[in-house]
């Protein structure tokens, strides 16, 4: 569309090297298919995920800021993070460094001791994989490349918590037409619709999957996930599209746990939006990592004519 995201720094984060590998594979494959180039941050570190802030929030600020420094040192003004946790933490670091003098001074102190330049806010823009496709390619650009329409596939779009909350760290959202909404996000809906999918009205788009306590309070997480799954089914969805590895693996894990521990079976499938868009562009299920998902979506994809 504008070409402004044709070449961006890529921050995969830890989850995409582990349980979320399918998201990593499909994001890269999608970029290749769309002619968008990603250059991985050199020697990046963990952003602090959802855990470090509970030990001390300013360590999380430092961890995320170090990655922003790397992006800048590599000559980039944009870093793209597909993981909601990474995306959220880089945004939060950007916000805190600009608004909280103490966060800024702690970051400078830690960076100084660690032997690298401290990140100055305003130098690097953090975007989500959704922004990357929506604003870098756009619906029309995507439509022109669809080879295998998702027609007939009913999708519940699930964004989770960290893509929109807390709203003050996302100053570019809620800016009226064309911008993303924190209350009712739609970027993923827009892209999947352009690829031919039929989006269902899903009231739990930004509800919580309990990801922060997925292991430490499993029963709470299972109850939250089961609610997401059962509601998606009640809305008529074949598949829940995700854009966060923590949500995604939480949904898969607790779908299994709900069945084995609570005796509640649900059959809605769970796929990353990058996997669905990749399939629509004619990439094979293997190429977008469908075999790496914990829950098996192949029978559903075959039935819908999206895989052989």
């Amino acid at each position: 569309m504008t070409g402004k995201y044709d070449k961006v720094a890529y921050y995969p984060g830890c989850a995409l090297e582990g349980t979320g590998h399918a998201y990593n594979r499909s994001t890269k494959a999608l970029g290749d298919a769309l002619g968008l180039q990603t250059v991985e941050l050199e020697n990046w570190n963990c952003c602090g995920a959802m855990e470090v802030k509970n030990v001390d929030p300013k360590i999380q600020t430092y961890l995320s800021a170090r990655n922003l420094t790397i992006a800048e040192d590599m000559g980039f003004d944009t870093v793209m993070a597909p993981c909601n946790g990474c995306y959220h933490n880089l945004k939060k670091a950007e916000y805190d460094l600009a608004h909280d003098p103490e966060s800024k001074s702690v970051n400078e102190r830690l960076a100084g001791k660690a032997g690298h330049r401290a990140y100055e806010p305003g130098h690097v823009e953090t975007i989500h994989a959704l922004d990357w496709i929506k604003q870098g390619i756009g619906e029309e650009g995507l439509k022109a490349k669809v080879k295998n329409s998702l027609k007939g596939l009913k999708v519940a779009n699930y964004y989770g918590c960290m893509y929109t909350r807390p709203r003050h760290i996302f100053p570019e959202k809620d800016r009226g037409p064309g911008s993303e909404s924190t209350l009712k996000p739609h970027f993923m809906d827009d892209l999947l619709e352009a690829a031919g999918a039929e989006n269902v009205e899903y009231p739990l788009k930004t509800s919580c999957c309990g990801g922060a306590h997925t292991l430490s309070d499993s029963d709470t997480s299972t109850r939250l996930v089961l609610n997401l799954l059962e509601t998606a089914e009640a809305c008529g969805a074949d598949v829940i599209a995700t854009e966060c590895p923590t949500c995604h693996s939480g949904l898969e894990m607790h779908q299994m746990r709900a069945e084995k521990v609570f005796g509640k079976k649900t059959s809605v499938r769970i796929l990353y939006f990058t996997q669905l868009l990749g399939l629509a562009l004619g990439l094979s299920p293997r190429k977008v990592g469908v075999h790496e998902n914990f829950s098996d979506a192949m029978p559903m994809l075959k039935q819908k004519g999206l895989a052989r």
Binding site: C161, R165, P166, R167, G210, D217, S221
Partner: peptide, 8 residues
Amino acid sequence: VSCNKCTY
């Protein structure tokens, strides 16, 4: 669960 709905 740190969903931040309250903060929102």
